Simulated assay, not measured.
Amino acid sequence: MSGLLGGSAAPVIVAALAGIALAAAGAWLTVIDPWYAALRVPAWKPPDWAFGPIWTVIIGLAAAAGVLAWNAAPAGPARTWLLVAFAGNGALHVAWSGLFFRLRRPDWALAEVAALWLSIAVLMLVVGRHSGTGVLLLLPYLLWVGVAACLNWSIVRLNGPF
């Protein structure tokens, strides 16, 4: 834990609160309703119950990556870039759920998920300047969003046009 704390608990607290806010926003926007239940999905789609635990782990790992990079980065522009990268990624992360579930536009969500995936790659580059471990902690996020993009594409293909 000392590597995460780096002398101050503030980054851990901020990262935890940001992770909770991100998870709460995504959960609020995710509506499992008759529209969603009626969608045709590929046979390889994970069960609905698996998404919550998977996202919880991924968001926790991303928060830890952010803390590691923050503690290793010098004060000033390096930390500003970390905040910008995480904030942009968080906005895209939440936007996908809004597009897919609330607006019922898997086609728009498919375009957005490409931006989300790229934002994770940028996040890895920014974090990687300060923490190699942080980059490794973000790898499951990149991979899972890749799986989610394939699932999103399959749903569009099986159900479109929207």
Rank of each mutant, 00 (worst) to 15 (best):
A9C: 04
I20E: 02
R129E: 09
G160R: 07
V41L: 12
A121G: 15
A16W: 05
L61H: 01
S154L: 07
V113T: 14
G134R: 02
S97I: 09
V147K: 11
G60E: 06
R104C: 04
P34T: 06
P140L: 01
P47V: 12
V14E: 07
A21I: 14
A10K: 15
V67H: 00
L92K: 04
V67T: 00
A149T: 10
Y36N: 10
P77K: 15
A37I: 12
R79S: 01
V156Q: 06
A37Q: 14
A73F: 09
S8H: 11
N159M: 06
P53T: 13
V135E: 09
N89H: 15
A27W: 10
A15S: 03
L151K: 09
P34K: 08
A27Q: 14
A149F: 05
S154E: 14
N159P: 08
Y36Q: 11
P106Y: 05
P74E: 07
V147T: 09
G128D: 02
G26C: 10
L143W: 12
L123N: 08
A25T: 14
V145M: 09
L4K: 01
A65K: 00
L143N: 04
T80K: 13
R157T: 13
G7T: 06
N89M: 10
A43D: 15
L151R: 10
P46D: 07
L103C: 04
I59R: 03
A114T: 14
S119L: 03
A91W: 09
A23L: 13
L83W: 13
V94G: 08
T80H: 11
L151T: 08
D107V: 01
G6H: 00
D33F: 11
K45A: 13
A85Y: 00
I155S: 02
A95N: 02
G60I: 06
I32A: 05
K45N: 15
G3Y: 02
